[in-house]
């Protein structure tokens, strides 16, 4: 198995688009954090304490609303403290890129038919898929961790009253976990549809369109929507409307759905002609 993992790592790093995609996802969050930190710092310095957030009901609105929001409390310095979650607002956008990477890691094998020499060299297809999953999720987890560390560093350096409290730690871990799960789910979709573009569109529409529509149109559907439940792990102040599961429950449900979709993709990859 270790040989197959090594092979998949060579494949991963030797294709420009793959490397660029994962770096772009990480960089996007860091660049957005830079501008957010600059903006938050300016607001805080001018005594503007984000009353919109202080009074807004948390967890309302679209699937990605509320990301990074949390109760603001005036610090002893008289300035509004800026949390880690306040500057990592680029995460929902980067998620699409991480998911796309998951689709691409398997989809491009089918697109260029390199899956045939791959499965000829390693006829036990489950090993190939497991190795791909391990490589792509590990790479995304590392990039996500570095990305979040850089965001924290930017906050520390640029923002006067930056805080990284226990909730932020949970947000950081939750973000890494969610990215890992979302990438795995993307790979599952890629294994099922075997078309990179179609797979990416399915992820995009499911997360950012379909789940929002269902949540607002079908009463009680919120608890069964994997993306909107899972992404609560990345929020400082999760949904309190009761429409969604708890942070832990939503995270577990999201991972169960991701595991099921990945497994369906693996079974189909095993059964279908390569």
């Amino acid at each position: 198995m270790i040989h197959v993992i090594r092979s998949e790592w060579i494949k991963f790093r030797s294709v420009r688009s793959t490397v660029l995609l994962v770096l772009a996802a990480g960089l996007l969050v860091v660049v957005v954090a830079f501008f957010a930190a600059r903006s938050e710092n300016h607001d805080a310095a001018s005594g503007f304490c984000r009353p919109d957030i202080a009074t807004a009901p948390a967890g309302s609105g679209s699937a990605i609303e509320g990301e990074g929001q949390g109760p603001s409390v005036q610090s002893s310095s008289g300035l509004c403290p800026i949390n880690f979650g306040d500057i990592t607002v680029g995460i929902p956008f980067a998620l699409f890129l991480f998911g796309a990477l998951g689709v691409q890691i398997i989809g491009q094998e089918y697109r260029f038919s390199t899956i045939r020499p791959t499965f000829t060299a390693v006829p036990r297809r489950g090993r190939v898929l497991a190795a791909k999953l391990l490589v792509v999720t590990a790479a995304c987890a590392v990039v996500a961790a570095v990305m979040l560390a850089l965001c924290a560093l930017l906050g520390t350096v640029m923002v006067h009253d930056f805080t990284f409290d226990g909730i932020d730690q949970r947000v950081a871990w939750g973000t890494v976990l969610f990215i890992v799960g979302w990438t795995a789910l993307g790979m599952g979709v890629g294994s099922i549809v075997r078309q990179p573009i179609a797979g990416m569109l399915i992820l995009l529409v499911e997360a950012f369109v379909l789940e929002n529509l269902l949540r607002h149109l079908v009463h009680g559907s919120g608890k069964w929507l994997p993306f909107v439940n899972g992404i609560q792990m990345t929020f400082r102040d999760p949904d309190h409307s009761g429409e969604l599961r708890s942070i832990t429950g939503g995270g577990v449900y999201f991972f169960v759905v991701a595991a099921v979709i990945w497994s369906v993709g693996a079974v189909l990859a095993h059964r279908r002609d390569a």
């Binding site: 040989h3 197959v4 090594r6 060579i10 494949k11």
Partner: peptide, 8 residues
């Protein structure tokens, strides 16, 4: 190299 590595 990717092919070779897959079989050690």
């Amino acid at each position: 190299w990717a092919l070779a590595a897959s079989n050690g």
